[in-house]
Write a protein that binds this DNA or RNA. Structure first.
Lengths: 147, 147
DNA sequence: TATTGTTATACTCTATAACTATA
DNA sequence: TATAGTTATAGAGTATAACAATA
């Protein structure tokens, strides 16, 4: 009997991808919870901080989520004073998402924690190996023939 | 304005992991649907074929899912004549999961399709690069300090 | 007609608790 | 007391459809 009886599942690249992501996501969730954030709300906050004035629709596209699922998320960030919905001159349908000072500060602190998290979970890999990993992964998701 | 406005999210290894897995899972789901299988039921069937007589508890451990969530899955495989639950002499609590001929045949056909799927979705990478990717990923999930 | 934000809803996946029969 | 299989249920996370206001 082997120590890890996966019956050959680990021969598949996708299996290894899934197991690695599972480890990473579990640790990331733990790290971000200390900031009152989930992975998706951290991503949303970071995009808003780095793209001030973005609309909810454009943010949903950037995050590859449905715009309907952004509403409560933004409600939460706005309710905590991290971002504001402000009117867009010339288009009264849109709300420009503006980061508040507290949102910028939280995004910066959380980003430092996320970087420490990545240093930890990818600590078995050298910096060169991490760059190689990113390069290989990006070529998979950015492969020609995909939107 | 850049073409992919991710606001720097792609600097994170985890982001690239998630996007790559998302692409892989979407294609895998489509491929396996032709066999009436989901990713988890394919994995279960493959483990049963390669580990005849395994119990549901041990299978759940191997797949890293809850045993309660295996019941309906095995009901489905058994109902389709792919596997059978057979009594274990000496322990009447356990059911040995035995692959039927049809299950072995389906697992073999599905495995060929999954290999073709991996050749397709990882087609941007050479064989050496795919081996490198697997090696890097395995070191992440098998990193010392994790169960 | 199309789009933005919103609400409500449904669906999938997963986790937990409790039960039975056995050990 | 503990374990295997089972049932029921609850909670995430995500997807879809429809609506009002606006373009």
């Amino acid at each position: 009997m082997t120590e890890n009886p996966d019956a050959g599942l680990s021969q598949f690249i996708g299996y290894n991808l899934k197991r690695a992501l599972s480890v990473v996501q579990a640790d990331l969730a733990h790290v971000l919870a200390a900031f009152g954030l989930r992975a998706v709300s951290y991503s949303a906050l970071l995009v808003i901080v780095r793209t001030p004035g973005i609309s909810q629709s454009d943010l949903a596209d950037a995050l590859r989520i449905e715009k309907s699922n952004l509403v409560q998320l933004i409600d939460d960030l706005a309710g905590r004073g991290l971002v504001t919905r402000s009117p867009v001159p010339g288009d009264r349908r849109r709300h420009a998402l503006i980061p508040a000072e507290a949102g910028i500060a939280l995004a910066e602190a959380a980003t430092r924690a996320v970087q420490a998290h990545e240093d930890k979970v990818f600590g078995a890999l050298s910096l060169v190996e991490r760059a190689t990993l990113v390069h290989l992964l990006r070529r998979v998701w950015a492969m020609p023939g995909r939107a």
